[in-house]
């Protein structure tokens, strides 16, 4: 759970172009939390991005809860408590949800192995059926000579 919340945060910019904090709460933290939550009245926009009034109020609530001393995890947990897992824009990586996190990479892994095996099989076939040289030795020599002239 803790790691799930941290991952997107780690990937967010570490740059210092940020706006000055409002009051005691860091607006970046508000944004980061808001970016994980689904704006409940919109379709597929985060609370951070949505221009809707509801999202605006939800940002306000996030700010309020942080001001009251909640940790970011507690704020997120509060929203999950009220709306269910549905409100999280990326499913928590545990239980059945692990599937959506792991399967793409498992697929890549399997794919890599398959590519490697196929490539080996095909290249073995190449080794077993030698094909005549497409060009004769004289042409090869001429290519080599001209290439050499090009390369200083």
């Amino acid at each position: 759970m803790r790691r799930a919340a941290l991952l997107p945060i780690l990937l967010l910019p570490l740059l210092a172009w940020a706006a000055p904090p409002a009051g005691s709460v860091n607006e970046d933290t508000v944004r980061q939390i808001a970016a994980e939550l689904r704006c409940v009245v919109c379709q597929n926009l985060s609370v951070a991005d949505s221009p809707s009034e509801m999202a605006n109020q939800m940002r306000g609530i996030i700010r309020e809860r942080l001001q009251a001393g909640d940790t970011p995890e507690q704020v997120v947990a509060y929203f999950v408590d009220k709306y269910g897992e549905w409100i999280l824009l990326s499913p928590r990586p545990r239980g059945f949800n692990l599937l959506v996190w792991v399967l793409p990479f498992a697929g890549i892994g399997v794919g890599l192995v398959a590519v490697l095996l196929l490539a080996r099989r095909w290249s073995r076939r190449a080794a077993s059926e030698p094909v005549a040289e497409a060009i004769d030795a004289a042409t090869r020599e001429r290519i080599r000579r001209e290439m050499a002239e090009l390369e200083p």
Binding site: P8, S46, L89, P91
Partner: peptide
Amino acid sequence: RGVKVSVGAPFFNLV
């Protein structure tokens, strides 16, 4: 599971 979840931008960006 009978549970509604969302898969949105943070997931897709990360993966």
